[in-house]
Design a binder for these strands. Structure first.
Lengths: 238, 238
DNA sequence: CGCAAGTTTGACGTACATCAAGTAGTGTGG
DNA sequence: CCACACTACTTGATGTACGTCAAACTTGCG
């Protein structure tokens, strides 16, 4: 558990090129309505393992992932770590608007995000109901996702957790069976409430059962998505 | 795992007496601003173990507990159950505004709630910014609480979970060391991701260590809140 | 008072954690 | 382009916290 994760963000790059702004607009879902947000967003480059914000920091920005990936996590004093969520390109995070952040946000890999100042975003939302509605909807989705996480952590076995994770990543990447898994085994373990060894064994087991096969360093092919889905939802499997 | 938890809500009691409405207004925190909500709230009496809504139901109301207590839970097909949260007098729930509820809400004991029609509440919020802000803030608090739940389930031991639970109930009941615990051992177990036996053993152990003592059927006195707090946050204890 | 439901306690089993090598990637400098 | 080192991952042997099964006990209610 190295403590070198100091805030080492590269310069804010306030003069973001047009090309980048185009990418921002072309996000995922109801982003059409968020076009007005472009104006107040600033591009930010974050190095691998660098923190975007730390637990306890005043929460002054909302972020959107452009490329790369981000994790939000909590560290216990004896080194135990729990990852609350991962954020992939198109995802927003940091909109849990308490006074201060209760989790740390770190980049999984070199990552580009857009940061929206909270003050300005609040003002914008106040006079643009569609934006307010979209923010509300994103909050609700976040809450729902976290509640799913709770069910998984509270009541699923190691194999079920892993299947759940893989299926979830697939959904988030558009439902293709070829999935990118930018997180390390340690990250996966800390997200699923397991150890790195258990995750590794699980993956090996899934390969043996032909549920998945490795296609690259951080890429899998789901060869038995139905079996995985069944496992993920807590059914018995033959 | 009895399946008798059919929707057996007592008649909506639309003619709520003035006295009850007074109670509604005198909730917990920023409820002063919610006075305008009184007009659209209807009182509802729910029998012990009856469901207010089921997983999959269209989400058409938001609720506020007046007396009694409510749990939201998810059932897996083999009988495993996970409780997402408990709601005590003054708490709002059901404002996770997806199209449908993804959890079932049941009364722990005979319970009285106020139900606010979602449509009307949305309209009210739209033209009353303070209400919108309060709803947003409640959502954020809910999200934060759920994230704490995730950390607990992912990384804490049985004893730590139990301590965390007791401390949390104490906070919610105003910080007194005399706490009401209206939930059964099974409820506590399903909330903490443990079994009923492990919960029972934990409580016995805490009594032996003089951290708590039973004062009534559903009441404890926290005699060692500091030790409990230390345990809850994952520290080592002598 | 007596039954049923809820809780506690005990004996035992197991899924996952821990400890400890080994192996395969990944990046760097010669 | 290859040798080296470093980190990430895998695999095996063993331990243990918690789950499971089962029986007593306690509590509340008719």
């Amino acid at each position: 558990m190295s403590a070198l994760l100091r805030r080492s963000i590269s310069p804010p790059n306030l003069a973001a090129p047009r090309a980048v702004l185009a990418v921002i607009a072309g996000g995922r879902r109801e982003d059409d309505e968020l076009a007005a947000m472009q104006a107040i967003g600033a591009t930010l480059h974050v190095a691998k393992n660098a923190a975007l914000f730390q637990e306890g920091d005043a929460s002054e920005h909302v972020y959107k992932v452009v490329s790369g990936a981000v994790r939000t996590c909590r560290m216990l004093m004896d080194g135990r770590r729990q990852i609350a969520d991962f954020f992939l390109p198109g995802d927003f995070f940091g909109l849990d608007w308490q006074a201060t952040h209760c989790f740390t946000a770190e980049a999984l890999t070199d990552t580009v995000v857009i940061s929206y100042p909270r003050r300005q975003l609040e003002a914008l939302a106040e006079r643009t109901p569609p934006i307010h509605r979209v923010l509300m909807s994103m909050l609700c989705k976040g809450l729902a996702a976290t509640q799913e996480h709770v069910v998984m952590l509270g009541r699923q076995t190691a194999h079920e957790r892993l299947a759940w994770f893989l299926i979830r990543v697939r959904e988030r990447s558009g439902g293709t069976n070829e999935i990118d898994v930018p997180m390390s085994r340690q990250d996966i373990a800390d997200y699923l409430g397991l150890t790195i060894e258990t995750v590794s064994r699980g993956i090996s087991e899934f390969k043996r059962r032909r549920y998945i096969s490795a296609v690259g360093a951080h890429q899998f092919r789901l060869t038995g998505p139905v079996a995985l889905q069944a496992l993920a939802s807590g059914e018995a499997v033959a």
